[in-house]
Simulated assay, not measured.
Amino acid sequence: MLYKFRELWEQYQSFQRRLDVGAKTLLLEEGQRSEHYIYIEKGAVRTYFNNNGEDKTVQFFFEGEGLMAIESFMNDAPSPIAIETIEPSVLYLLPKPQVLEMVARLGAQLVPLLVQRQIHYMHEFVSFIRDTPEQRYQQLLTERPQLILRVPQHYIASYLGISKVHLSRIKSKLAKGKRHF
């Protein structure tokens, strides 16, 4: 499946716009309409929303991954999230008409990818309800160590739903626990 997607993606190269951008570049503002699929060749991106003046990070994306504000993109509605680079990044933007054409050409072959993404989000949702912030941080350490190394701590704290101070306490507690072994 991935091979077919890459092959098809290359067929749409003439429609893609390459962006070389710095860290903290806003790619989509909350409330704007999403008109592009964003592919990350190099760098890191986060999605977030504003909650009473405070950013709440929803997700992180890295090299070889793509994203869009799906609700906005598919429903031609204002985006409930913003998209911003975390690091200097090389991105490719594919406009909505070509994305929809590509999706139509792939058809049912996209279903496993969509199901995999849905399962991922469901696991995150359940973890947010069931697990403590410390358990969620430990999961990040185990399952996504590159995130811990590349993403600023205040974004990780926001993603975990805690303050930077609370994250520092968790990290300190985990470091002390390792020293006792």
Score class of each variant (00 low, 15 high):
residue 143 E to I: 01
residue 137 Y to R: 03
residue 153 Q to A: 14
residue 140 L to Y: 03
residue 125 F to Q: 14
residue 151 V to K: 00
residue 128 F to Q: 15
residue 149 L to D: 07
residue 122 M to N: 09
residue 155 Y to L: 11
residue 135 Q to E: 13
residue 152 P to D: 06
residue 147 L to G: 00
residue 133 P to M: 09
residue 155 Y to A: 02
residue 128 F to G: 15
residue 150 R to H: 06
residue 143 E to F: 04
residue 123 H to W: 09
residue 136 R to Y: 04
residue 131 D to K: 11
residue 136 R to T: 02
residue 135 Q to C: 04
residue 136 R to I: 03
residue 139 Q to E: 11
residue 134 E to F: 00
residue 149 L to E: 09
residue 149 L to I: 05
residue 125 F to P: 03
residue 131 D to A: 08
residue 133 P to H: 07
residue 139 Q to A: 13
residue 131 D to Y: 08
residue 121 Y to P: 03
residue 122 M to R: 08
residue 144 R to H: 12
residue 130 R to Q: 14
residue 148 I to Y: 02
residue 136 R to V: 01
residue 153 Q to H: 12
residue 121 Y to F: 13
residue 146 Q to W: 03
residue 145 P to D: 04
residue 144 R to G: 02
residue 146 Q to Y: 05
residue 131 D to W: 04
residue 128 F to W: 15
residue 147 L to E: 02
residue 124 E to L: 15
residue 122 M to Y: 10
residue 128 F to V: 11
residue 131 D to Q: 12
residue 123 H to D: 14
residue 133 P to Q: 07
residue 134 E to M: 04
residue 136 R to W: 01
residue 124 E to Q: 15
residue 143 E to L: 08
residue 149 L to W: 05
residue 125 F to N: 12
residue 134 E to K: 05
residue 145 P to A: 06
residue 126 V to N: 12
residue 129 I to W: 11
residue 138 Q to G: 02
residue 133 P to N: 08
residue 135 Q to F: 04
residue 124 E to C: 11
residue 127 S to P: 00
residue 124 E to H: 12
residue 131 D to P: 00
residue 130 R to G: 04
residue 125 F to M: 15
residue 132 T to R: 05
residue 124 E to F: 08
residue 151 V to S: 00
residue 140 L to M: 11
residue 153 Q to W: 08
residue 128 F to S: 15
residue 130 R to D: 10
residue 126 V to F: 12
residue 135 Q to P: 01
residue 140 L to T: 05
residue 125 F to W: 14
residue 126 V to T: 14
residue 143 E to K: 10
residue 129 I to Y: 11
residue 144 R to W: 05
